[in-house]
């Protein structure tokens, strides 16, 4: 791994000030450290934000679940409050990587990285999450820009993610057996007036499938989406699954999610 300077700022202001075009913020490091070791990324300065206490913690209020950026997957998975308010979110966190990754990896790190196969972005999209940074509040739909690309600007730090508690929700994942990343992941959230079906793993970036969401908003049943054929032309195609297979998996797992609600 190439050398870098390691910083542990005491607060968000100091962390933001240290940022430059050749720096990166470090949270759990479960992606960034292996990436640096493999030479896929190099930085002059690594700014470790996980020692800033304010950034960690879980708060459930009437209609929302707020998760601090550096809250670990294991904490979300085991949180009684999250399990009660949005059980599918706890389930999602408990299915990321493996036990050791969940002991280090964080929600902020996951969404800032915006891996096309990561689980958390689908939860943000389906649960109409608002991403709070040190500068502004960003709707999930405007946050995930493209493959490994987000709306975050230089020096901007995610402070917390606010999820809206749905009436019903479920997350279904077809995991890569080695990495546990989603070959396809379907996050379904049902609110009074709408149903959101967010898909990860299928395209270069997480998205809400309009056909599935509309059909389920009209009639919340498996039969409402039975027979829907999705366009596979923009879907990822790789050694693990062809685009056609992914298109088929999305519908299959959306049906499973409806059944599980």
């Amino acid at each position: 791994m190439k050398t870098f300077n390691y910083h542990t700022p005491k607060d968000i202001k100091e962390a933001s000030k240290l940022a430059s075009t050749s720096s990166a913020f470090l949270a759990g490091g479960m992606t960034s450290i292996p990436s640096m070791k493999l030479g896929l990324a190099t930085y002059k300065d690594i700014i470790d934000i996980k020692h800033i206490k304010k950034l960690s913690g879980i708060k459930v209020s009437g209609k929302t679940v707020t998760i601090g950026a550096t809250t670990k997957h294991a904490e979300v998975a085991n949180s009684k409050d999250v399990k009660k308010a949005i059980p599918s979110l706890a389930k999602l966190a408990g299915g990321i990587g493996d036990a050791q990754v969940r002991n280090r990896g964080t929600v902020g790190g996951s969404i800032a990285n915006n891996d096309p196969s990561a689980c958390y972005p689908s939860a943000c999209m389906a649960l109409n999450a608002i991403i709070h940074t040190n500068n502004r509040k960003i709707e999930a739909a405007k946050f995930f820009k493209g493959m490994f690309e987000t709306a975050l600007k230089k020096g901007e730090i995610i402070e917390a993610v606010v999820f809206n508690i749905p009436d019903k929700s479920n997350y279904q994942k077809h995991p890569n057996p080695a990495s546990r990343y989603a070959i396809v992941g379907v996050y379904l959230a049902k609110y009074k007036k709408e149903v959101n079906v967010a898909i990860t793993g299928a395209k270069p970036v997480v998205y809400v499938d309009k056909d599935l969401s509309k059909a389920l908003s009209n009639s919340f049943s498996v039969s409402a989406i039975d027979g829907i054929k999705l366009d596979s032309s923009e879907m990822n195609s790789d050694i693990h699954a062809s685009g056609d297979f992914r298109a088929s998996l999305v519908v299959t797992y959306a049906k499973k999610a409806v059944e599980a609600c």
Partner: peptide, 27 residues
């Protein structure tokens, strides 16, 4: 593997298991 897949490097930090190949000593 040295890329946090294999788990041969697991140690406990403050009682919790983590992969030592993907953690900075300074951290």
């Amino acid at each position: 593997c040295d890329t946090s897949q294999c788990g041969a490097c697991v140690v406990h930090v403050d009682g919790k298991s983590i992969k030592s190949c993907s953690t900075l000593a300074a951290d």
